[in-house]
Design a protein around this nucleic acid. Structure first.
Lengths: 207, 207
DNA sequence: GCAAATTAATGATTTATTCAAG
DNA sequence: CTTGAATAAATCATTAATTTGC
C-alpha cells in the first residue's frame, strides 16, 4: 500500500500530516519491536528523530501508535471472528458437536495463541503499561514553539496545534520550560551512532 | 502507577486531586451554564480562576468535565432504559403489542426527546465540536512550571505531570513557550467584575 | 493520459469503559 | 460507592488509491 512517495508533503500546509515513507518505515519498525503506547518522552524522542525526514509533530506520533495499535487489534479480531465462524460451520457440518457450550472466548484465545500467526506480538496481551522508567519527562523539546498552553493536546482542539516547528531536528536544547535538573536518561530508542542496531528499541522492562 | 512525585512539589502530595466545595460549585455552575467540552484556553482560565480556592491543575478541570458529561449521560440513559422497560412491560401487559419489530433505538430516541426530561441538554445530540474559535491558544499560562514536553498531556502518563504550580494565579505572564504575539482574546468565562452574568459562557458559535 | 467520481486508508476527535484512590 | 485518571473503542474527516468515462 501507499507506494505513494507522496512527495513527502512538500505541499506545505495540508491540514493533516501524512508520513513520508521513511517515517513510516521507522514507525513500523518501532511498532514491530514492541512499542505500543510510547510514553511522553519516547514520543518526544521519536518525533525529534523523525523530524529529520519531514514535518512531524508529537501528536502525529501519538496518534499513529494509537491508531496502529487499535487497527491491528481490530484486524486480528475480525480475522478471528471469521475463522471462528468458519470453524463452527464446519464443525456443525461435520460431526455435529453440541453447540450449546459456547465457550467462544476460550476457543478464540486458543486460536490466537496456538496456530501460525506470524506476527510476533499480540497487542491485546501485552502488558498495557510498560516502558516506564522513573526517567521522568521534560525532555529538551526541539519543538520550542510548542504551546505550553496546557492541554492543547488532550482536548485535541486544534486551537494551538499548528506549531511552526522548524524542521530542524535536535540541536536547540532550548530549555524552554524544562524543569530544573533531570537525569535525562536517554532511552536509546535511537542509538546515537549511525549504526542501526535494529533490535534495541524499548525492550520493555518486566514492569 | 507512578504516584511519582505527584506531590506537586509541595509536601501535600495526595495522589489525586479532590475539589474543594467552592471549586466544585463553580465547576457545576459552569456545567449548568452549558459548558461541556471546554477548549484549552477555557480550561486555562477556569484553572487559573479555581486555583484561587486550592490546588488544581488543568488536567483536573479537563477530566472533571469529561467525567461529569459522561456520567450525566449515563445516568440519563440508565433512567431512560429503566423507564422504557417499564413501559414495555406495561404495554405487553396491556395491549400485547407484537414484540418482533424491535425498533428499540427509535423508541428510545423518541422517549428521550418527547417527554418531560427536565434536563435542558442532551449531551448525545449536542454538536460534537463546538467552542471553536480561531482564537488560538497560547494563553499566558499561569502554570509556568508546566512541562512543555510535548504530550505529557495526551498520553496521560504521569511522567511529567506533577507540575509544581505555585497556587498563585495569573500574574506571571511568563512567556514561557508562548508563541509570538496573539490576540489573547479573553473569553469572559469569568467576567472581571464581580457580577456574575451567569449566561455568558461559551455560547458556541454556529460552527 | 487525465480529471471527476468513488472507494479504501488512515489521521484526528469524541465517547465509552475500565482502573483505582478515598 | 463515588469519582478522578487513564485507556480503548467508535466515530468523524481528509487524503490517497482506484475506477470510470472521455
Amino acid at each position: 500500500m501507499s507506494p505513494a512517495g507522496s512527495g513527502s508533503g512538500s505541499g506545505s500546509g495540508s491540514s493533516r500530516w501524512s508520513p513520508t515513507t521513511e517515517q513510516l518505515m521507522i514507525l513500523e519498525e518501532l511498532y514491530r519491536s514492541g512499542i505500543r503506547t510510547p510514553s511522553a518522552s519516547q514520543i518526544q524522542q521519536i518525533t525529534t528523530h523523525l523530524s529529520f525526514y519531514g514535518r512531524i509533530e508529537g501528536k502525529n506520533v501519538f496518534y499513529w501508535f494509537q491508531n496502529h495499535k487499535a487497527r491491528d487489534r481490530q484486524k486480528l479480531r475480525r480475522k478471528l471472528t471469521k475463522q471462528l465462524q468458519l470453524q463452527q460451520q464446519q464443525q456443525l457440518h461435520h460431526c455435529h458437536l453440541n453447540p450449546d457450550i459456547t465457550n467462544h472466548y476460550f476457543a478464540a484465545a486458543a486460536a490466537a495463541y496456538s496456530p501460525c500467526s506470524s506476527t510476533p506480538d499480540f497487542p491485546f496481551y501485552n502488558p498495557p503499561t510498560f516502558l516506564f522508567q522513573g526517567a521522568g519527562g521534560s525532555v529538551n523539546t526541539s519543538e520550542q514553539a510548542l504551546n505550553c498552553a496546557w492541554r492543547e493536546g488532550v482536548t485535541f482542539y486544534n486551537n494551538g496545534w499548528s506549531t511552526p516547528m522548524n524542521v530542524n531536528n535536535q540541536a536547540s536544547s532550548s530549555s524552554c520550560c524544562t524543569s530544573s535538573s533531570r537525569p535525562l536518561k536517554t532511552l536509546d530508542l535511537f542509538p546515537l551512532t549511525t549504526t542501526r542496531t535494529d533490535e534495541d528499541c524499548t525492550t520493555p522492562p518486566p514492569k
